[in-house]
Design a binder for these strands. Structure first.
Lengths: 195, 195
DNA sequence: TTTACATACATACTGTCTGTATGTAATCTG
DNA sequence: CAGATTACATACAGACAGTATGTATGTAAA
């Protein structure tokens, strides 16, 4: 069987990111040796360092992948909804649901800022989760739902609170209660933003 | 010159945490070898592993120190103010001022959750920054300033937004503008919480 | 279809770093 | 001041990231 170079490349590349994803999510970036990643992926360290400049670069690819998938799911809720307000509430619900996934919590929320540095991490987020949220808030202001205000910084703070809510709920003794509290707290913010 | 064991211990201990503080703040936990910490502190690795179980343990001590000092400064604003409302605003201002310090940003906000793990980090925070904030919010509810609500989760989300605000301001092209935006965003939340 | 090259990997090695084991000097106790 | 304990220093072992080099596989022009 004769495979093209592209096929070879993309299949080992995705084997590496898939393996990395699972391992990094389960045990955290620094607890996973590259050796284990390549063994899990069924290749060798040579393949890893052919496709990625270093371990961090692999991690960056994993983070981008996770973030993109996550954002796609959440933003689908917004576009599927009849109007913006209900869409945003549905997205909030989806956000908190999806954040129970350790892939999100460990990779995107815990390790990414420290491993990639806050600036790189922020750049990735800006193209995914943060981008969608900023858009939604901008639209909400345009439609008169929210009071006119600069949404750039607001979006960052809201996203940060959302991330924290996810972590709090995951770690809580009573997740249902924690979730209700979080929704109330976030709701009060939303109320303060209304036009 | 004959020093007591306690003096020897505490002075090398603080030499180590002081050196660690500066180096971790400047370059991040994983970029600083223990060898450099002990050289800066003027001791050897033997001293380090006598006083701390491992590198992480030293880092934990540094985090606790930083967090305690930081919280003391912020909470001083609350107690110094004539009433709770103005105290909380003064504390907010102090918080954002102090967060320009890279010791806070790199050590407490970026590295700590990833290095110590989110749970350990949370436990430390709960005894310092988060503890004070929770207290303040509880009092605000008791005094009728804020609407009755569970403050535990709320405090976490607010603190997270505050942390993010600090990072955003530090990284912004126009920090003054970013700060104004952040204060507006946080103010709108506060408004939504009022009784 | 063969030759020349590029891409995709594998293997072997090196330097760095953390943590440990062991040795030595300083302090404390009876 | 002898013995025990504490505080450190030195030497070492294992693990890991990254690199250098070798090999196999695919590609493309002559």
């Amino acid at each position: 069987m004769r495979r093209s170079q592209q096929d070879r490349s993309s299949s080992t590349r995705s084997a590496l990111t898939t393996a990395g994803r699972a391992l990094f999510a389960a045990r955290g970036y620094h607890a996973v040796p590259t050796d284990e990643v390549v063994r899990t992926a069924g290749v060798t360290r040579g393949a890893l360092y052919h496709h990625f400049t270093d371990k961090k670069d692999l991690f960056r690819a994993v983070v981008t992948e996770v973030e993109a998938e996550f954002t796609a799911k959440v933003s689908a809720e917004v576009t599927a909804a009849p109007d913006l307000a209900t869409g945003m509430f549905a997205a909030l619900k989806a956000f908190l649901d999806l954040c129970s996934d350790p892939e999100i919590r460990q990779i995107a929320l815990t390790d990414a800022p420290a491993v990639l540095g806050w600036n790189d991490w922020r750049a990735i987020e800006a193209e995914h989760g943060l981008g969608v949220l900023t858009e939604a808030l901008t639209r909400a202001v345009e439609e008169g739902l929210l009071a006119p205000q600069p949404v750039g910084v607001l979006a960052r703070l809201v996203l940060s609170a959302l991330n924290e809510a996810a972590l709090v709920i995951a770690a809580a003794e009573d997740p249902a209660q924690a979730r209700a509290d979080a929704e109330q707290a976030l709701g009060s913010w939303f109320a303060g933003l209304l036009a």
